[in-house]
Design a protein around this nucleic acid. Structure first.
Lengths: 298, 298
DNA sequence: TGACGCGATAGACACCGTCTATGATGACAG
DNA sequence: CTGTCATCATAGACGGTGTCTATCGCGTCA
């Protein structure tokens, strides 16, 4: 049985006339007669009582048309919903963002995203890199903003913008008097984030650490780390977009001699069908952050 | 779009695997791949994210499967309902019956009908001949029990049994002493039913009336007519099946010399598709009334 | 690195939905 | 009562498409 057959059935039931029903269906009258006859044979039920004058639905037919109407309506609904879903730049878009980036980047890109992609329903999800990749692979995210290289056979990514690091110093720190701070000078009393934050390893690497890091203090969040630096526990490297928050915390920021930094990338599943949405979101973000690395300010 | 396509969609969504879904649908894997691809192109929506390892429904797909499931379910319901309707000897059967027959015949045939046709849901409808024929032609009845000849191009009928008339007399009536009464002897003080009852004309014809009948008293129902006879207002002819009711009313019944009577027929639309049900009902009735005309009793 | 599993692609085939032409039947008017 | 009209049914031809088998491309795993 076919949805087409059900449409034919409904047309004949409605018009009570094969010729008119056929015209309404856009087919010839013999075709309609044959199809209705076949449907009757398939169901084993007489659907219409035919006279040369009238075509009247049988009581059996009346018991069936309700279901036929419902089936056709559901099929129409599929088309209607699909029409709404057709635009890859519309609908829910679940975007993972690492914690050291989210609170500072999101305020910058919400407005441009809403303007450029008004139909896109952005759902940010903040978590650490490993968790984001896991959710991405599990189809629980559509894309993720990361600061690590990570392409594999199943995932793809694309750089969006470079984010330089800055030396974060307590006001009373000896280095605070400098215009520029060399990365290795921070190594002595550097504070870092807890395990799992990509910024932790990147900051240590920038300062010249190769092996294990012996420092005991490990901040669970960038905000805590900033508070600790402000309180004089040590120094650290912060991502450039966090500059505002750091200054609010009373921290002295200095550019780095070797211009250490990280690259923020957008990542997605290689087979993700809404590549266009990923592309569009990435472009909005890259455009918004254009020139940030050079100017050091947004 | 086809119901088949929706079934395929549901199968792939459920199994997450083209090969297994194809096996579940009873088709080959390439066929399923092609059909799903076509559905995606038709809807303009990516339904699945394919990897060599996994097949995951997109969020669009998840928005659609509900409707797909509903459409398929309604189609299944059509088959299920049709299966119940397939038996022409099952389901509602609206049977019209004339008023001079209904109260006396129905008690006799209910039990045999229920026994012979347990799935048939009999709905009796009592009205006069003309009204019954109108409802029959309007498809508001499936068949009718009448006492008149009435075949036309659109209607067909078949005799079920002969019902002899009886002379109905007040106990004190001069004819009450006879064993047999001649029809014409009733003409002098006969009482008849109101216009519209076929029994009215048949009774008058049996008594030899050809033209207009001048009698002023016209009973609206057979019960009233019997009461009037019992009260001594006159005589009448009653159908044989009403004998019990007449005797209960205190009326004397006598056979008629010329054996006047009527033939009860079942009538249906010539194109009515459930001829088998009509036939079966007719046979049950005819069987139950076999020998009634001869024996004069049921 | 070779074997295996999975989905995509290609080409052949058969079914069936569609058409036009025509038949059968009943209604209606002259 | 007979020709005409309208209606649905039937017949035969045609084209689209759903299906198959065979094969490819790709990724995984031992």
């Amino acid at each position: 049985m076919n949805l087409r057959d059900l449409r034919y059935l409904l047309a004949v039931a409605e018009h009570g006339h094969f010729g008119r029903a056929a015209r309404a269906c856009g087919i010839s009258q013999p075709t309609l007669s044959v199809q209705i006859r076949k449907l009757e044979e398939l169901l084993g039920v007489a659907l219409f009582e035919r006279t040369s004058k009238t075509v009247v639905p049988t009581s059996s037919c009346e018991r069936l048309v309700g279901h036929a109407r419902a089936a056709v309506a559901e099929a129409e609904a599929i088309f209607a919903v699909a029409r709404d879903l057709r635009d890859p730049l519309a609908g829910r878009f679940r975007l993972g963002i690492i914690p050291t980036l989210a609170p500072h980047l999101l305020p910058l890109i919400f407005a441009p995203l809403r303007q450029a992609l008004p139909a896109l329903d952005l759902e940010p999800w903040e978590d650490q890199t490993v968790a984001l990749l896991e959710r991405l692979r599990a189809h629980e995210l559509d894309a993720a903003l990361l600061a690590t290289e990570m392409d594999g056979p199943d995932l793809a990514s694309q750089p969006l913008f470079a984010e330089p690091f800055l030396a974060a110093l307590p006001p009373e720190h000896p280095l605070a008097g400098r215009d520029v701070v060399a990365e290795v000078e921070l190594a002595r009393d550097i504070l870092v984030l807890a395990d799992g934050h990509c910024l932790r390893e990147q900051a240590l690497a920038a300062c010249g650490y190769n092996g294990a890091f012996g420092g005991a203090l490990r901040a669970a969040s960038l905000a805590t780390l900033l508070n600790m630096v402000a309180a004089g526990y040590g120094t650290t490297l912060i991502p450039g977009l966090a500059a505002g928050a750091a200054q609010d915390a009373g921290i002295v920021l200095r550019p780095l001699a070797a211009r250490a930094g990280r690259t923020v990338r957008i990542a997605w599943r290689a087979h993700f069908p809404r590549r266009a949405a990923v592309q569009a979101v990435g472009e909005v973000i890259a455009t918004r952050l254009r020139g940030f690395a050079a100017a050091g300010t947004v």
